[in-house]
Design a protein around this nucleic acid. Sequence first.
DNA 1: GCCGTAGTACGGCGGTTATCGTACGAGCAC
DNA 2: GTGCTCGTACGATAACCGCCGTACTACGGC
Lengths: 123, 123
Amino acid sequence: MPTDTTSPGAVPGSRALAHPAREEIRLADVLHALADPMRLRIVCTLAAAEGELNCADIELPVSKSTCTHHFRVLREHGVIQQFYRGTAKMNRLRTADLEELFPGLIDDVLRAADLQSRRLGER
Amino acid sequence: MPTDTTSPGAVPGSRALAHPAREEIRLADVLHALADPMRLRIVCTLAAAEGELNCADIELPVSKSTCTHHFRVLREHGVIQQFYRGTAKMNRLRTADLEELFPGLIDDVLRAADLQSRRLGER
DNA sequence: GCCGTAGTACGGCGGTTATCGTACGAGCAC
DNA sequence: GTGCTCGTACGATAACCGCCGTACTACGGC
């Protein structure tokens, strides 16, 4: 599987992380990645931040290792891009890629998530 | 769990099938239901048909029991509505409910699925 | 060099999923 | 009634998932 290891913003000496190329991203995989409340939360937070966020900046009610797991699922399925900056691991939504492949999808999912959380009175 | 058993179009004497009420449908559940190639195919076929379809009318490369399983997942997660007509089980997308809960989402998923299948040269 | 912080790798646990085959039930046609 | 077709129920299996804790590595500051 061809990988995109040179991520813009990555520090040269950093370890490389495997990402699927744009044309390898599959709809079912993306939906699967989004079909978990914890990961949906990550994606929403990332979208609201409109930029790159440290892993630790996104508070989740799970252990560190579970956290790593969810971020990896999102990355390996093409939803986010990750790269190291010092000891920190930065995360960014692959907005452009997803928008090109599945126009409007991510926006609608984010909007639906927002609508639902309002409806359920969770905030 | 409140259930909507009296489905429009169902023959009176038929067995009832449990469906989640509109307000019980969860985004993560819907995404999970759609995050399977087989089920995505069912939903696309159903959307293309623009009406109700017999279970057997949707050809899938899996056994009958697996088929039943996938239809049940879609129903229990609020994506489709099912009811009996004679020996046949009819299926219909819950377009109105989904559109109200998650505006634009289903259309985008269907469009994305179509785009992807073209891109992959699968038809 | 030493230590703290950020995150990974690994192994395990319990629950769920996708698949199948076989046996059964419900309605229709005869 | 008999038989046909459509779909269900059940049990089994193999894979996967979400979660955890522990032990480890990588980087930056002192």
